[in-house]
Simulated scan of single mutants.
Amino acid sequence: MQKNTITKNPKNNIDFLKSSSNWKSLYYFNQNIDTSFFEKNKFLKDLKKVEDLMFSMVCDDSWMGHCSKYHLQSGGKRFRAILALLAAKIFGLNKQSSINVAVCCEFIHNASLIHDDLQDRDLLRRGQPTIWSRFGDHSAINLGDYFISASFEAITKCQVDPEYKCFAVEELSNIIKQTVRGQSNEILGRSDFHSKMFDYESTSRAKTGSLLSLPVKLVMLLKGSRECSKNFLIPLYETGLAYQIQDDISDFIGIKDRGLPGRDLKEGKMNVLIMHYIENATPGEKFLLQQFLKKRFDSISEEEILHWIIQIKNKGGLENSIKHLKNIAAKAIKLSEVNPKLNMIVKFVINRTLNRISEKIKP
């Protein structure tokens, strides 16, 4: 297969990413991030407690309990739970509370996935039918709400000063609102060629960055820390932007679990690759892409998607997005150096974010 060819088989698209001259630079940048402080084996028992508590809270004999079990049994990396446990260890939060923070963050994350799948009409999640495609739209809406309510319950069970719990509940509410605003802006901005890179980055920080900052914010608030300001946590919002760029690239070449490459194109999403394409395209090329993105979801053929994947790559969309990802990752780490504890957390998040690509594609 030629390197500049995208096929419908995601495994064959590995060469497509390797053809980027910036990929090796990003790969070795990630290899040099020091995360020796993190030993996953030391968190396995606590992760099991997180898993058990999640199931006990929502998996009863009701219809919502049935849907909960179906979704939670599909797996997932439990990255937010690990991040919460790591932050709790670094900042010194007690074990019982750290378990509940991890549960809270996983419920919020999974609620966002369920609602995202419904809005994007994604058929698969973690290799199995999504909640809406298996049980209907109404069950997806209800289950997402069910998980959100469970997240608040988890925080109320933390064994800390009641005043600290009030601060944490307030912040949880704020983060949910930020995430919803970010998701709303993303949907409203689909096929909007007036959007700029600034708009894309702002939306990504609000939607993805807020959820990635949540475990650290909750741990610090429950510990009684007053450092938990937005300025202090700016590096974590940058990790959210890096995560979103990585996610866009993974979707573009088809190494996510959505079945085929370019699902964002089919949904009309103004992702980072499209933003970079627009910066270099002629007025005529922009017009043609805009007309494509405005088409009805169910009227777009795979051949059209593959055509635009190649066009975007040939205009430097992939190259520039990989470079963009490295720059944001480096920026997040640099900004966090003012606080050694925060620096460890940011390095961990960036490393795990870049691993989502590099574990599947090595130079």
Score class of each variant (00 low, 15 high):
2 Q>S: 09
4 N>L: 05
6 I>W: 00
6 I>Q: 00
9 N>M: 04
17 L>M: 10
21 S>G: 09
34 D>F: 05
35 T>I: 12
35 T>E: 12
44 L>I: 11
45 K>G: 10
56 S>N: 14
58 V>M: 13
60 D>V: 04
64 M>L: 14
75 G>E: 06
76 G>W: 03
77 K>Q: 06
79 F>N: 03
83 L>S: 13
90 I>Q: 12
95 K>D: 13
95 K>H: 13
98 S>K: 07
108 I>H: 07
131 I>K: 09
132 W>I: 01
139 S>N: 13
141 I>F: 15
145 D>K: 03
147 F>S: 07
151 S>V: 04
154 A>I: 02
158 C>F: 08
165 K>C: 06
167 F>T: 05
177 K>R: 12
191 S>N: 10
193 F>R: 03
207 K>E: 02
213 S>K: 13
214 L>H: 10
232 F>W: 04
233 L>Q: 05
241 L>R: 09
246 Q>L: 01
248 D>P: 01
250 S>Q: 13
251 D>M: 01
255 I>V: 14
256 K>E: 14
259 G>T: 02
261 P>I: 02
263 R>M: 07
264 D>C: 03
267 E>H: 10
272 V>W: 00
280 N>K: 15
285 E>A: 08
313 K>I: 01
323 K>Q: 11
326 K>D: 05
329 A>F: 15
333 I>F: 12
338 V>L: 08
346 V>W: 04
356 R>C: 03
358 S>Y: 00
